[in-house]
Design a protein around this nucleic acid. Sequence first.
RNA 1: GGGUCGCUAGCUCAACUGGCAGAGCAUCGGGCUUUUAACCCGCAGGUUCAGGGUUCAAGUCCCUGGCGACCCA
Length: 520
Amino acid sequence: MGEKPVTDTPERPTDERTRRLEKVERMRAAGIEPYPVRFDRSTTIGGLREKFPDVEAGTETDEVVRIAGRLLLLRRQGKLTFATVRDGSGAVQLFVSEGEIGIEGHNDFDALDLGDWVGVEGVVMTTRKGELSVKVRSFQLLAKALRPLPDKWHGLSDVDTRFRQRYVDLIVNEEARRVFEIRFKVMAAIRDYLGSLGFIEVETPVLHDQAGGAAARPFLTHHNALDMDLVLRIALELHLKRLIVAGFDKVYEMGRVFRNEGLSTRHNPEFTMLELYEAFVDYGEMMTLTEELVAHCAMVALGTTQVIHDGEVLQLAPPWRRLTLRDAIIEHAGVDVHPSMPVEAVRVLCDKFEVPYEQSWGSGKLMLEIYEKTTEHRLVGPVFVLDYPREVSPLARVHRDDPTLTERFEAIIGGRELANAFSELNDPVDQRERFEAQAQLQADGDAEAHGVDEDYLRAIEYGLPPTGGLGIGIDRLVMLIAGVTSIREVILFPQARPERPEVIRALAVEEAESEITPNS
RNA sequence: GGGUCGCUAGCUCAACUGGCAGAGCAUCGGGCUUUUAACCCGCAGGUUCAGGGUUCAAGUCCCUGGCGACCCA
């Protein structure tokens, strides 16, 4: 053995860790395996609680159970120890008495550390105070924890550590577990709901040879065998619409997309999108579907369609208010803007609202910029904002009543875009023109614009039926329903910079030292 | 990218204008057979993010860097 304890990230070696390592060695020396292969449970803790919901205080049943979980709290009281163990379904108290398992057994139990995984067998009972407990008859260490848990009362609150070591966050912070339970319920509710409507869930490629379907910078990667650069998808759109061409009436995909942009409380470089497409309908149906789907998710996850956002109660139950982009701007900025206006006139309005712009932008793009600066953040909603300029909507069909607009809406809740949908553009000639306009923007240096997707055009030249399409940011939906303000709270392992360089440096120093004085 | 704030024991946090670096929890030792963040007594635990500077003296002031939070673009 080396002369000093093994260090590893992120902390320096702790006495606690060394102590527990030594404990592991002692156990092995005594013939006890600290990491046994398996443990047969008779029930989960949740199942146990379900079976014994209401046992009178001071009862000892004749039911013997075998449960397993992580040891979270220990309360030793002389010849009696109370412990709290938790598995994936819940927590329960262990009642460990010297009278039941003897002095030696009790001391062995006492040698367990907080954080250890244990399996126990015992009789179901309640204490004098009525706490459901398992009176331990025998127990077994299932996995030794080497690192101590954070403070049992305050938990782990350092945000950076919480996200980097999410496993610890989830062990000790009830709120973290609550948020992810909501996330998983929401995702399951979406699949259930769409399935019940006849939608088919599909999976399309993550690696694309060309980015498309949204305005965003992609991540670049490289395929060695093909010797070609690829991008990670920024949207699901173009593949899903190929599937509508293929003859699927209703398809959806819920999956990860990647956008090469900054990190913030609202942005993580990889996030989860739901996109769905339905043949023969327009954006009106998409509105109905959106409000019903969101309300359904809230109902499943929370049991109510009311959510609290920024201290205010929002009602998600349909119907949601609908107003045009133009009317929204009139309402909140007090000016009437329309893509048909001369660009000079719209620039004057941009100046008035201190909206920066580029010379290449037309009235439609400027209109959207004005909306984003003056109006969007004030829309508490839920509200559907309809009819976006054609210039900023390269995949949406032209509005049936106004050739400068498209049949597109965004759902806004709490000042943020939650969903984006259109009557899909299915005219291949028009689509080619839009792509070419995007390609021009790209050539002019717009890193978020993309070129002509020839295969997509070929696909819709086979005929894309009239189609309604919808995209919902799942992370934002979960944030809304869970009532949290940072996207990192709803992503299990949010993006972070590599861990503290001084740790790496310290390890490098140790390596250098070990070269000078080799271990004997 | 700009601004503000933060980084102290394993965890959560203190340390007034520069003057011996502390508490609670966890750990360790002792006590306690119905606790619920159990409790009581005692011990130990520190590269104050890193590096440099000012000073008799730096957790504290200055500079550079790292990581993070919030606000702005």
